[in-house]
Amino acid sequence: MDDDRPLHDTTGTLDEALERLHATGPERHGWLTNHAPMAVEALVRRGHAPAVHRWLDHYRPKLEDMPPLHSPVTDANWREALGDPARIADWARYFERETEERPWREVLAAWWPRLLPGIAGGATHPVIRTGHAVRTLLTTPETAPRRAELAHALGYWAARHQPLPPLADLAAAPSAAAALDAVPPVPRQDGGVRDRLPQLTAFPRWGAAPDPETAHALLTELVTAATHRYATRAHGEPIMLVHAATAPNAVLRTLPALPRELWAPSLSAAWSASAAVTAAYTPPEPAPYTSVTLTAEEVFERAAAHGDDHTIKFTDTALDVGDPLALAAAARAIELNPPAL
Rank of each mutant, 00 (worst) to 15 (best):
A247I: 08
A280F: 08
A257K: 07
E285W: 10
A244G: 15
A226L: 11
A273H: 04
F300Q: 00
A273E: 01
A217D: 15
A257R: 04
L241T: 12
P212S: 06
V299C: 11
S291Q: 09
D309C: 07
A280D: 04
R205P: 00
A273W: 02
R188T: 12
A287S: 14
A234F: 02
A287Y: 03
P204L: 09
A217T: 15
T214M: 06
I239E: 07
V251K: 01
V292R: 01
L252A: 13
D195M: 14
V183C: 10
P212C: 06
M240N: 15
A234L: 10
Y230E: 06
P256A: 05
R233Y: 15
T227V: 14
L255E: 00
H235R: 13
T315W: 03
H216P: 00
T290D: 09
S272D: 11
L255K: 00
P187T: 07
T214D: 01
L262H: 10
P288A: 09
T290C: 03
T220V: 08
E261F: 02
S272C: 10
A208T: 13
W271M: 08
P187E: 06
W271L: 11
A202Y: 07
L252T: 00
A208P: 06
G191L: 12
P256C: 07
T214A: 11
A234I: 02
R302Y: 01
V223T: 12
R233F: 14
W206F: 10
A257V: 07
R260I: 02
A209P: 05
I239G: 10
L222P: 06
R260Y: 01
D211M: 05
F300G: 00
W206P: 03
H235P: 07
A276P: 03
A231I: 02
A296H: 04
P256S: 08
T232Q: 10
E213D: 15
T214P: 02
E298R: 09
N249D: 15
P284R: 13
P185I: 07
W271Q: 03
D190L: 12
A209F: 09
E297H: 10
N249T: 08
V299Y: 05
V193L: 15
L222Y: 05
P288N: 08
A247L: 12
L255W: 00
L255T: 00
A247M: 12
R302K: 13
T293V: 02
G207M: 03
A225G: 09
S274D: 09
N249C: 11
I312K: 08
E221I: 09
L262F: 06
E261K: 04
S272Y: 05
Y289G: 06
V277I: 15
E297C: 02
P198Y: 04
V277T: 15
P238I: 04
H243M: 11
A215E: 00
P286K: 07
T295E: 03
S274I: 12
I239K: 11
A202R: 08
